[in-house]
Each structure stands twice: as C-alpha cells, then as structure tokens.
Design a protein around this nucleic acid. Structure first.
Lengths: 198, 198, 198, 198
DNA sequence: TATGAATGAGTCTTCATTCAT
DNA sequence: AATGAATGAAGACTCATTCAT
C-alpha cells in the first residue's frame, strides 16, 4: 500500500486512467472502422461506459481525436528527429518529412476533414497540433530552400495544406494503385514541365 | 420512362418538367447559400413541393447535385471550346482549363466531398460527370505534354484529383489571402526546385 | 383504456388530422398528470408516434401548449361573450371575467410558467394568446373603472399578471381549502383596509 | 453504517466547516448570477470541491438554498425588529415588512419557485423557513388589523403567498417599468374601487 | 471525510426515405 | 404524378446522484 493518504500530489485515479485509455482503444478501433465521423455515443456504448463518462474525458469529438493523435504525434516527432539525424541533405529531409506527415494524416479515414476545420477556427485542440507541424514543415522547407532544393516562395503552411489535401483526395483513389504515388509526385514537382519555367 | 396514358389529352407532362426545373433553381440557390450539406426537405419546402416529389425527380442528393451541375457543365464545356479556340499553345490551354475546373468545383461550398465520394463508388450519377472531365483533362494534359509543357508521367486523372484536393483544402484557408494562389502554384510547379531534377 | 391501435407491427396510417388530435388528447392527459414540464418524447411514445411526427405537428413545447389551449380559448371567448350579455354591470363583469381567466390558467398544472415566459419573449405562440386576453382584460377594467367599480390607475395588464400570479401560487396552497378564495379576495380588495386610504 | 451516538460533542472538523461556508459563498454568487436553476456541479467546481462534498453538506438543491437563505434570514429578522422599533403604527409596519419580504424573495432569480414547492410538501428544509415568516407575517397582519389598517379576514399566510406570487410574476414584467410598483399596489389595495364595498 | 469518476436515463432535435392517400 | 404525413433511428450533450478510492 504505497498510497499515502492525505492531499499530496493528486494523481489521477487508477480506474479513471484505465477507463480513459480503454475509451481511447475503443475509439481507435471504431474510427478505423467507421471513419472519424462515427457516433460518440456508439463509442461509449462499445467501451461499456455511459456517454457522460466519455464526455468527461473528452468534451467533444475534436478532443477525443486530439488525444487519439497524441500517441501518433510522439511517433511523428521522433520520426522528425530521426530524419534530422539521418537525412543526407535538407531536401531529402523535407521529402521524408512529408512522407511522415502523410502517414500521420492517413491514420484514420476522414481525419483530414477535422484537421482542416481546426485550421479554420483555432479554438480546437487539433489546431495546436496542426500549427506545431506546420511550423516544423516550414523549418524543413526553409532548410531545403536554403540548400536550393525547394522552390523559393513556397511556404510551409501551403505544403502542409497540400499534404492534407492529397491525403484527403487519396481516400477516393484507393482502387487506383498508381494514384497515391502519382499524387505525391504531383505535389513534389507539379504538373508543369521544368522547361516551362527555365 | 414508359409514359402511361389515361384519359385523352396525353401531355408530355409539362407541369412535371416545370416542377423539375423549378426544383433545380431553388436547389441551386439553396446550395449556394448553405453549402451542399443542407437539408433536402428544406429545398422541397422552398420549392413548394413535397419531399416525395423531389425524391421522384432526384432519388438522392447526388442525383440532384448531378442535375445541378449539368447546367454548369454546359458552361464548362463551352469554356473548354473557347480555350481550344483561343489558347496560344497547349500549355496555356491546360492552365486555363484547370482554372475553369477550379471554378466549376468551387460552385458550391462542400462540393468536392461528394465528387470524391462519387469517384470511389462509380454508381453515383456524379461519377459520370467526373469521368467526362477527367477525360477532358487528360486530353489537355496529353496535348501539353506533347508540346513539352507538361511533365511526362502526369495523368489527367491525377491532375483532376489535385484540383479537387486543392479546392477542398481551400475551404480552410480563407483567412489567408495568399493561400489560394499559393496552392495553385504548388499544384503547378510542386514544392521542389527545378534544379533538383535537372 | 381501449387503446385504439392497429394490428401490431404495422401501424395503420392515420389521417393527419386524426393523428394530430390524438396527440393532443394524449398530451392533454399527460400534462394533466405530470404537469406541463413532462417529456415531449414521452408524449410521442404514449401517442404511439415517432418523435418526428410530434415535432411535425408542434415544433416545440409552446406550440403544443398553444394548440392545447386553443380549444379552451374558444370556451373562454364564449364565456367572455356570455359575461357581456349577462352581467348586470361592468364591475360584476370584470369579476366574472377574472374568474373565467383563473379557470383558464388552471387548466394544467404549471401552465402559468410558460405563459409568463411567453410574455417575456414575444416570439412564442403563447404570447399572442396572452396579449389577446390582456387586451380583453383591459377592456373589462376600463369599463369597470368608468363605472366606478375599479380603482383608477389599475391596468388590465397588471390585473392579468395578478391572476397569473395567484394561479401560480395556488399550486402551493392546495391543502388549504380557504386559500384559493382568500387569494382571489386579496387580489380584489388587497390587504389594506378601505379606511386606510379614505 | 452504525451511527456513533455515544460520545457526544463530536465537533465537525474545522476543514469541513471551512468547506461548507466556502461552498455557501460560491453558491451565493453563482445563484445570484445564473438564477437558482444553475448546475450544482458547476458550483462545486467553482468552489474547488468535488460534487460529493457538496452533496455531503447539502443533500439536495433545497438544502443548499435553505442554508443560503439562512444568512439572509438573520438580516430579515433584524429588519423585522427594526420595523417593530421604528414603525409609527402597525399598518406602516406591515407595509414595511412586506417590502422586506419582497426583497428577501427577490434575492435570487427563480427563488419563488422552490419556496412554493416547499410549501406544498413540508419535508423540504425551505418549508421551515417559510413557515416562520408566515407566522411573522401573520403577527404583522393581526396587529394592523387590530389597528384598523388591515382588512378583516385577511390571513398572514395569504399575504405571504401574495408576496411570493407577485415576486414570481415580476420576473416576467421586467421590461415594463411600471409593473413592479403596480403589482405592489395591486396587492395592497386590490383592483376594486373602495366605493365598491362601502 | 473528501474526492471526483461514473452513471445513464433523459433532453430536444434532425432528416433521408417510405408509402398511404 | 404528386403529395406530404409518418417514420424512428440516431445525434450530441447534460446533470443530479451514487459510490469506489
């Protein structure tokens, strides 16, 4: 019984923690199955808790989503660090970062939508997450540009939006195996031939 | 549709035709105002017909949307023809076509979504519309490529998807005035510097 | 209760009017039982219709209440006419009118509350009803005043509010048989002795 | 849970006392702001305690309200005493007492409602409070009546209810500046002209 | 005793679609 | 053909109260 009674540093109750992460597990599965537009009540039901419990932990869908992404965020951040360490040059780094970002956005079907919405009204907990990665993207873009690998005038924010957009449209192109890489290439080099601007 | 005639006076149902086009008018205004996610009931109400009538003419939202776009399609087609006539070269033509396509997709707030969905399951009446324009886009792309203005390997379908994607993400970027042109440029030339691939 | 429901499973589609009045019947009983704060869903359930059907007929609680009162309104109006015809003088008329008003307000337990609320924000369908009766009350008050039976300076609106208020407290005084008439008398003559103001 | 009645003099813990009065402070502010229908959870939160703690001190909303009024009761009682000391005659005293009572009831928006309810079912802690003031009111009324200032047959209870009622309806009449005094006058002298009963 | 997590029935509301009239 | 009433599942979210910690 290492539990000291009294009011020392309040730690979250064990059962609450358990519940929270259980809800997250269930939500992950549910969202993976039904896309992120599924019913929150259904998630609560499947998790075996009342809707109030879910709402206590996550006051709205975005909060739940943000919590769900948090785990992946850590992964994304570590991937960023790895890229910093391993990439031969800034251009390759940017490329790999965008790939990482693309994977992150593809975590759940329909995820691009709330991310876009969050970018619109900054009050969402998702907005913070996004802004962080926008900044990171901008850093990568800048470095690549300094190196001559990225086109001048391209902003990190736009590239981020581009990744988001491509991830969104990819949802439609699943039957077409060539589409995903084609879309990445499109974002990378555009449709115009280089000669066009020389 | 086998027209069943009863008593004499077998008219081609002028009133039904009138109804149909009236519904379309109303729907156009409604979608322009509220985005394409508005309630179909509300449209029927505003058009002064019962929901059943609306449903008879357009069995679901996509059908309505498709019919709505058909009118614009004519415009888009004529724009295509004008481009063919006026454009100095195939590259400029493609550029202008994509601009036209962008305008077309931006007709209603939220339109990219059902278009994307239609591309997924081809059963939607919107799918046909899209496929037509994909073909057209491909024609433009091919011509530009033959001319050296478009990058080899770029498919019309991908470019179409790219336009769709950019139109979609644009919804989020409204506060940012630089974003729309930046996104167009991104799609045109990508983020990578030309030197990168020379 | 010989509940006239159709064969189990398939509910025979009733005429809209009949459905409407059936809902009203049920609502009347339900409100009489549980007071006017009861659940609308419960009423729909009890009426054997979906909540949507109830909402189609009565978009909100006030609308339902207003419809419920409409029948009684007719009665109140005819009572008003009878009073006009029968009352010996304007003072007796006012007296009888207030009695009628009191009966009207006592139709459902808790009715004074939404009436008061409606008086606050005039958008409610109940507001119209109330305003009409306020006007009528004012007419009666004026006539009585001209005759010397009502105190100068008393406005119809205040008297109406007084009736509402007394009906409201009456809910508390049920155990006390003397209270209702005492409250009426209080409203009529006040607590102060006439000598006090001579 | 065995009730430990043996050794008496078990004082409440100091921190419990502190908690209790802090909750009261917070509740006072909250009710003053949001009316008495606000969420108890919100009060607990604002007070920095758990809802369980609030519940332990005040098993329900009425108990909290009663405790809250107790503080004001002292003030009301002292006002009563001051009236006794200062009033020139019993009629003026009654008048001033009713004014005091009106202020008391107006302490919180929506307060009349639970008071009325408490009068109905005497089990509420508010009932006691009310009964005390009803008695006081009756004393004032009697004294005034003996002096010829109050109408014979008027009972303290009824006058109390009248004050409650007028306070209740006043909530609706706020837009109308003339209403509050008009309602007071109505309660004082009624709508009938004195001549009517001479 | 204090805490605050959990409960879960309950609130109102919407809407695509069906089907009796 | 047209109508529009009916459906009823589903949605998000609340909150007084209980109970495990």
């Amino acid at each position: 019984m290492p539990e000291r009674t009294g009011p020392p540093g309040r730690r979250p109750r064990a059962d609450a923690q358990r519940n929270r992460s259980h809800i997250l597990d269930v939500a992950e599965g549910y969202f993976a199955e039904h896309g992120i537009a599924g019913s929150l009540d259904a998630i609560a039901r499947r998790a075996g808790v009342g809707p109030g419990t879910l709402y206590r932990h996550f006051p709205n869908r975005d909060a739940l989503l943000a919590a769900l992404l948090e785990a992946r965020n850590a992964e994304l951040v570590s991937r960023r660090d790895r890229i910093h360490d391993e990439a031969a040059d800034a251009t390759e780094a940017l490329e790999r970062w965008l790939e990482a970002l693309g994977d992150w956005v593809a975590a759940f079907d329909g995820l691009p939508e709330p991310l876009r919405a969050a970018l619109r009204e900054e009050s969402s907990p998702l907005a913070l997450t996004c802004e962080g990665f926008i900044t990171t993207t901008d850093d990568f873009v800048r470095a690549a540009r300094d190196e001559g690998g990225a086109r001048p005038g391209v902003r990190g924010r736009d590239v981020f939006l581009g990744v988001l957009a491509m991830a969104w449209v990819r949802g439609a192109a699943m039957a077409d195996d060539q589409a995903p890489p084609a879309l990445d290439a499109l974002l990378r080099t555009g449709w115009a031939a280089p000669a066009d601007e020389a």
